[in-house]
Amino acid sequence: MALNTPQITPTKKITVRAIGEELPRGDYQRCPQCDMLFSLPEINSHQSAYCPRCQAKIRDGRDWSLTRLAAMAFTMLLLMPFAWGEPLLHIWLLGIRIDANVMQGIWQMTKQGDAITGSMVFFCVIGAPLILVTSIAYLWFGNRLGMNLRPVLLMLERLKEWVMLDIYLVGIGVASIKVQDYAHIQAGVGLFSFVALVILTTVTLSHLNVEELWERFYPQRPATRRDEKLRVCLGCHFTGYPDQRGRCPRCHIPLRLRRRHSLQKCWAALLASIVLLLPANLLPISIIYLNGGRQEDTILSGIMSLASSNIAVAGIVFIASILVPFTKVIVMFTLLLSIHFKCQQGLRTRILLLRMVTWIGRWSMLDLFVISLTMSLINRDQILAFTMGPAAFYFGAAVILTILAVEWLDSRLLWDAHESGNARFDD
């Protein structure tokens, strides 16, 4: 018995066209964080690309023209004298008006014999932002004059995390709450300039795509075929072959399989920071003279006294001054041990922890910024005066060393310790 099946006739004509040209192939790229070699397709503007294995951002879609970056830099340069030299806060102490600005706080630190601690604050609040705007201006002028731009481009990517104007702005709020127990506070004209400078700096850093600047100024022929001998440069993120001198053909720094002496430098910085954190938390970090009496505060006791007036601000200072430094030390110690013992479990967790400490590390400088600003506000000789204690130097040095330890660690070593050939990683 035959089955009668109805015929289905399409209502619209289906047209099949042959592909007349070869589909576009992607360029081969190595991930600078996990060293995976993959094919990167062509990316349009405002599109980002991520590593298929570790999800690290390979290409950032946010990109401004150099002219727009230069305009932002010149605007920031105009704001800087007002943000640093004009009063941020006014207080009335014992019937006398006192003005506080950024430069005055750094000068008070240096004047009291601790120039190293003052230079830490100076670099993060004044030096690094000033280098940022002058570097962008150098790129703008240098591109037109045919100057060598490689050193500036190499420095810009590392400079971003040292620009800490946003953290200093939080420190202004913390210092205001600490001082309000002794005097009446009012915002100064410099505060508005400083807030504007923070906003412009944040926007500029978020749109400063150094890798795209490398592509514009020093374009290189990408690798179009897969080759395990391809290496990625950690300076400019170019994937290719080393030249005859073993250097990256684009930025001219040595092109090595792994960062040289990464573990040794990381261990040295980490152990030194552990040693410095002990006096930083045991010795007094601030000293207040009130009517001839002397009151010393460690980091913890200062947080407890701050909690009596504002528990939320005390929580912020606790996280930045105690929780973050010790968390960074514990995480980095764990990561280094996992590399030495070739741990194969929990790779995803370790990668996330490394990215976390990379982002939060700079916030530990908050305590030094609060001390710097408070020193310029309260300084009335023996009637009422505020000065920093010996722990300030140890704390600042420990924070900087932990930042350097994270920067010096080559994250690809975590993958080397893991089993080879993993296309995915999980716990």
Rank of each mutant, 00 (worst) to 15 (best):
G26L: 08
W267A: 15
M164F: 02
A268N: 06
I287V: 13
G20D: 07
I322P: 03
A312V: 13
C251W: 00
A128R: 00
M356P: 04
A392I: 03
L257P: 10
L230K: 12
H46C: 06
L413K: 12
D416S: 09
D227T: 15
T298R: 10
F393V: 12
V125E: 04
R294S: 04
T327G: 15
D297T: 05
I351M: 13
R144C: 09
V198H: 15
I285K: 00
H340E: 10
C54P: 00
G302I: 03
Q244E: 12
R362Q: 04
G292V: 09
I185Q: 06
P151D: 04
R226N: 14
M375L: 06
I253K: 01
S193F: 02
I274T: 13
M109V: 06
R412H: 01
V406H: 01
F341E: 10
M103P: 05
L277S: 11
Y218H: 07
S376N: 01
L66N: 10
R250L: 12
V121F: 11
I136T: 07
L300F: 15
D63M: 15
S119E: 02
T5S: 08
H90E: 02
R53N: 10
R259G: 14
G142F: 09
A175W: 01
R412K: 09
F38S: 04
L354P: 12
V324F: 15
G421Y: 15
R412C: 01
L213R: 14
L213C: 11
C54Y: 00
D99W: 09
R226Q: 13
R97A: 03
F38I: 06
I172D: 01
K13G: 07
W107K: 12
L77C: 12
T5M: 12
E22K: 06
S286T: 10
V174H: 01
E215C: 14
W214P: 01
F38W: 04
L139G: 04
V324M: 15
I330E: 02
K13R: 06
I8G: 04
V195E: 03
N148W: 03
C266W: 01
F395C: 02
A196N: 14
R221P: 13
Q382G: 05
R30N: 04
E419V: 09
A385F: 01
K265E: 09
R30I: 08
I98R: 04
A70P: 07
G315P: 04
G95W: 09
L271P: 01
G171T: 11
P219A: 14
K12W: 05
H207T: 09
S309T: 13
S193I: 02
M103R: 03
E42S: 06
L169M: 11
F217S: 15
S119Y: 02
K265G: 02
A314E: 01
D114H: 11
Q186C: 09
V163M: 11
D181H: 02
N291R: 15
R53T: 08
L208P: 15
P52K: 03
W162V: 02
I19N: 09
A312Q: 15
V170H: 11
R258A: 07
M304T: 11
M365D: 04
D381P: 08
G171D: 09
I371E: 00
G246F: 13
L208V: 14
H207F: 15
R380T: 01
Y394A: 02
W408D: 04
D60Q: 05
H340K: 10
G396I: 02
A269N: 04
N4S: 11
A71H: 03
R158L: 15
G240S: 10
S193T: 06
C51R: 03
R259V: 10
V210H: 15
L353Q: 07
L139Q: 02
G315M: 14
C51A: 00
I116E: 15
R258Q: 06
I177Y: 09
I330W: 15
C31R: 00
E215V: 13
D35A: 04
